[in-house]
Amino acid sequence: MTDPSASQEHGPDSREVVRNWAITGIFWILVLGALSLAQGVFVPIISAFVLALTFSPVRRVLEGFGIPSSAAAGMIMISLLIVFCVLFYFISEALQEYLIDAPTFAEEVRRELSGLFGTIEPVLKAGDQIDALTNQNKQQTVALREPGFVSVMTQATPAVVSQLVVTLTLSFFLMASGDMFYEKLVQVMPKLKDKRRALAAARTIENQLSTYLFTISAINATLGVIIGLVMWLAGMPNPLLFGLGAFLLNYIPYIGSIGGISITLVTGLVTFDSTIQAILPALLYWIINTIEGQFLTPVLVGRRLKLNAVVVFISFALWAWVWSFMGMLLSTPILLMAKVVSDNVNGLESFGKFLGDRDDLSGSDSRLLKFVFRQKDRSAAEEA
């Protein structure tokens, strides 16, 4: 007979471990479901906190000149509104021409792509003829046209504007309150050690977020200017739109650069008759973006933001699935905040180590890895 008390001393039952993992998995599934369903609430709140943390150092600099917190927050928000309005004006002016000529542009794109893939055109036509013959005797159905781009944008504009208003308003109140958040954080922590750790984590999040976003914005602005000039020299239509597009798309990890190159390639194919001249702008875009992504950004940002590249991509895919476009923009700031919190909370240090970039191994860990790989290589050699 086995003693139940003896088994409990050796550790938890395997069924208990499975049960705990199942409960944890269900909890995180429910959290992701709630975040996805209530994105109209969570996205403006998190965006407002990111903006407030980013511009808090600017607010403190203004306060150093004797400007009150509310006035400093107002100056920052007015500056942001001016920037948003200027960007919206230039983008709307540039897009207006493309929206007017959208049907003609789409037909030209279809014709150019069909010319590139002309070898499969007979196969496609044969498939269409077979479908037509098959569906001759079928009952006729009424097809409902899906809403076009303009109608979709018209329907989405009120929601976007309302979320933007909530984000900017909440950001203003957070910055106008000064350092009240830090004061409340100190008051709710029970021990002096916890107070210091919480303050250190909050200040680290603020410093890293502001440094990261300001640096990325400067890099993206430089990239946009260079792309606009290169598109102008290459003879592309409306190079200003390409420069603004490169500036905005580069905030989206991975997908932004691919989208910019693809749009440039399609526009070049429609604009120019020569294949080399049509592909050249997209090639130049790719070269400039590669130099920025592989050399400039790692040097300026990588030393401050040490995150696991695989985890960055997983975070991007996860938040893009949960919050679509805004999730793409917020994925890296959210991951950065999670890394700092994990590094400063007891029990989460291992998770923070996993989120970080590669570190130097200790002597024992290095010897263990060498021993394991040596054993695997020896077993593979014996099997061969």
Rank of each mutant, 00 (worst) to 15 (best):
P281T: 01
P298E: 03
Q208H: 13
Y89H: 07
D194W: 03
V142S: 15
A38W: 11
G224H: 02
M328W: 07
I252A: 04
F105S: 04
S350F: 13
L369F: 11
W321L: 12
N308K: 05
S331N: 04
V301M: 03
A234W: 04
T211W: 11
L330Q: 03
E93D: 09
T134N: 12
E383L: 14
P190E: 05
A126W: 06
F242N: 01
K376N: 10
Q375S: 13
L280M: 10
K306N: 12
T332L: 15
S7P: 02
H10E: 14
F242M: 04
N308I: 07
V301K: 03
V299P: 00
L249E: 00
F149K: 02
N135S: 15
E121W: 06
A94I: 05
I219R: 03
S274I: 00
Q96F: 07
G74A: 14
P158H: 03
I261V: 02
P190C: 00
L87K: 04
A72F: 02
M77F: 08
G40W: 08
P239C: 02
I46D: 04
I82K: 00
I78F: 14
V186G: 00
V188E: 06
I219K: 00
L80P: 06
K339E: 00
N308H: 09
S217N: 05
G352M: 01
F27W: 09
P253D: 05
K376V: 13
G259H: 03
P103Q: 09
I26C: 13
R59H: 07
M180K: 11
I334P: 02
A384P: 05
F84C: 06
S69C: 08
M75H: 05
M153A: 10
S262M: 10
K125F: 08
L164M: 12
G148E: 04
D131V: 12
S7W: 09
L37P: 00
K138V: 07
Q129Y: 09
V41Y: 12
E349F: 11
V123M: 15
I314C: 14
